[in-house]
Each structure stands twice: as structure tokens, then as C-alpha cells.
């Protein structure tokens, strides 16, 4: 497998093999992604979702690529900015726990959409 999925979503962990399961919050998941980026891995999917509502999600799955020789500065900046942006929102808000099962499903479906975009590539 070429990609690694970093996720705190148990549905994703059940379904895929190339998963790094993080038993924690979205913020913790983002920080783990950042640590990988700092080691030279690249982002495949953007760390943030596309709507405010999804910021309330207790689950987030992010795809990263193989380790490269050199750190990807742009990706490092993207993950750092994403963490700042995420924290800025969640310092004031809480994740929406009541409908966590639905967030699990939608996170999985959005991940699948991202994976399907990546099919048939090798670079």
C-alpha cells in the first residue's frame, strides 16, 4: 500500500489495512499527522474538511503519502495552519457527540471519495 491513513475513526480502522489508528481527539490526530509531515511524509488529503459543520466532527481521517527525502515545506505549512485554524474554532466549541455515529459514517464516505480520486496514480 502506498498511502497511510491516519484516523481516529473506528469505522475507517475496521475497513482499511493501511491505517494508523489514533485513539484520541481530532486535534491529537492532526498533531500526529504534523509529526509525520515533519519527518518528510507528504499530505495526500487536506487536514481540514470543507464546512464548518464538519469541524464539530469527533472523527477525522487524513491520508498521507510515502516518506520523501526532503521535508515538504508547503505541506508543513498547511498542517500547521490547519491545526491553528482547528484550535481557533474548537477553543470555543465542543465536538458534537450526540450524533457521533453519523460523523463516523460521513468521515468514512468523504475519505473514500478522496481515495477514489487518488486511484491509478504512482508518483
Amino acid at each position: 500500500m502506498k498511502h497511510l491513513i491516519i484516523t481516529n475513526n473506528p469505522l475507517v480502522a475496521e475497513k482499511y489495512e493501511n491505517v494508523l489508528w489514533t485513539d484520541g481527539s481530532v486535534e491529537k490526530t492532526l498533531i500526529i499527522v504534523r509529526d509525520f509531515i515533519h519527518q518528510g511524509y507528504e499530505l495526500v488529503s487536506h487536514p481540514l474538511a470543507a464546512s464548518l459543520r464538519m469541524l464539530f466532527s469527533p472523527y477525522r481521517s487524513i491520508i498521507i503519502d510515502k516518506k520523501k527525502e526532503k521535508l515538504n515545506f508547503e505541506h508543513a505549512q498547511i498542517i500547521e495552519d490547519s491545526i491553528i485554524k482547528y484550535k481557533k474554532h474548537m477553543d470555543l466549541r465542543k465536538t458534537d457527540e450526540k450524533t457521533r455515529d453519523d460523523y463516523k459514517k460521513i468521515d468514512l464516505l468523504l475519505l473514500e471519495a478522496a481515495l477514489s480520486e487518488e486511484q491509478g496514480k504512482w508518483y
Partner: peptide, 22 residues
């Protein structure tokens, strides 16, 4: 600093790129 783009954006004038974040 390793991420020199950040270094520039925080206003450093003299920058020496370094090896890796850790």
C-alpha cells in the same frame, strides 16, 4: 529554522536553513 517559509513570515531577515524539524 527548517521551515524557512515560516521563518520569513515571522519577519526574520537573516535565515540559515537547517536540517530537519526534530
Amino acid at each position: 529554522a527548517t521551515i524557512t517559509t515560516i521563518s520569513e513570515s515571522v519577519g526574520a531577515n537573516r535565515i540559515v536553513p537547517t536540517v530537519a524539524i526534530p
